[in-house]
Design a protein around this nucleic acid. Structure first.
Lengths: 211, 211
DNA sequence: ATTGCTACTGACCGACCGGTCAGTTAGTTG
DNA sequence: CAACTAACTGACCGGTCGGTCAGTAGCAAT
């Protein structure tokens, strides 16, 4: 009677476990987090986690699937909202950049899965990326994009540049002079320069704009 | 008498331990590697590792310092070899890209230290980066580089883009159609496009080239 | 009320973890 | 030669790990 022994609600329990596990795994890495710790922090017994997810490995997979699903939904929305005009790339960069800024945990997940060589993750993203490639190819046919860029590599570069920034942002700030403090619009400075370098190189040159 | 009990050579022993630890740590991450495993694979007893490096944490630090030192030496050489002409950036990108391609372990180390939030690492790199910033500022004064780019962010973007490519290369390849196999010059394609987008955006525009 | 299902608990397991320590052995110094 | 230092060994420690299992308890169907 000390504890009401939890409300009997499998779904809520699983969600609680997943959210706690997600926070811990993403922060410290799968190996550095114990099942005991997850149990403690989510207010659930260790056995119960095993009851719902069997093994630590499977819990980790469940966390990854959950996060990638959320990411995929968002990414798909970005592709769908791409304007057809010349501002397409600028818009896309900004939307993706802001999404990642508000969900830095997705970058850490990305990074952990890259390091562990998770083969699953790549396949999950494939149809997503091919949607983007189709969009970009379309834009090329309309003359909105240089014909000599590879759409998939363009996505790699756009996504990669953004991801690595949010992964190592704090590290980069240490590179600057410690005197005078950091500008707190560091993100905006980066985005502006990224956009400038990227877009100016990506936009069709003058002799091919009017096709 | 079964084993000649090792040649009594502290330096060689430490090197053997460091090399084994480096390979394992970089591959699997610090938490996933046990001292027993390092001992086994380097042909040394576990106690001997503790004798030379005290704790696992200190061994990890020794590995990081060793690798960063090697990296710093190389990076410094790149800065020093920067040509003063208009090909400066193109040359720098290629040299750095090729260095990382031949030392992919440095990217993994980079990534592990980012995820664990290693504060030390950032400071180690600082003087290195400021050397590069000085070089780029110089180039700007000579009109070889747009005046409106931030040199430090430029380095962040150059290094970051390259690093993330070699971190997630295998993952990106899964994005492509499984049919028709990958081109084995994937690296060159990426580099070419990276260069094109980056340089064309970075070069001074026509009205400021002749200062 | 009984049955059946399953969310949930707590005690327990063997394996492995990082680290310690007393002791052995090889090389150097005097 | 003896004396000393430091490289090196193997047995051992307390603690934590992921995982199991027999049992309890809440809820729905009959």
């Amino acid at each position: 009677m000390n504890q009401p022994a939890r409300k009997r609600d499998a779904e809520a329990t699983q969600t609680a476990i997943l959210e706690t596990a997600q926070a811990l795994f993403v922060e410290f890495g799968m190996d550095a987090v114990s099942m005991r710790n997850i149990a403690l922090q989510s207010g659930v017994t260790k056995s119960l986690i095993h009851h719902h997810f069997q093994t630590k490995e499977q819990l980790w997979c469940a966390v990854k699937e959950r996060m990638f699903a959320e990411y995929a939904e968002m990414q798909m929305a970005i592709f769908d909202s791409m304007p057809g005009g010349p501002d397409m790339l600028r818009h896309t960069i900004r939307v993706y950049f802001n999404f990642v800024r508000e969900h830095p945990e997705i970058v850490r997940l990305w990074c952990w899965t890259c390091l562990e060589g998770d083969a699953q993750a790549g396949f999950v993203e494939r149809q997503l990326i091919q949607r983007g490639v189709a969009k970009l190819s379309e834009a090329q046919e309309k003359g909105l994009l240089r014909a000599d860029v590879n759409p998939m590599l363009l996505i790699v570069q756009l996504v990669g540049m953004t991801n690595q920034w949010f992964l190592a942002r704090e590290r980069y700030q240490m590179w600057a002079e410690p005197s005078g403090e950091q500008p707190n619009n560091w993100d905006e400075l980066f985005l502006a320069q990224f956009e400038r370098l990227f877009i100016d190189g990506v936009s069709p040159s003058d002799n091919e704009t009017s096709s």
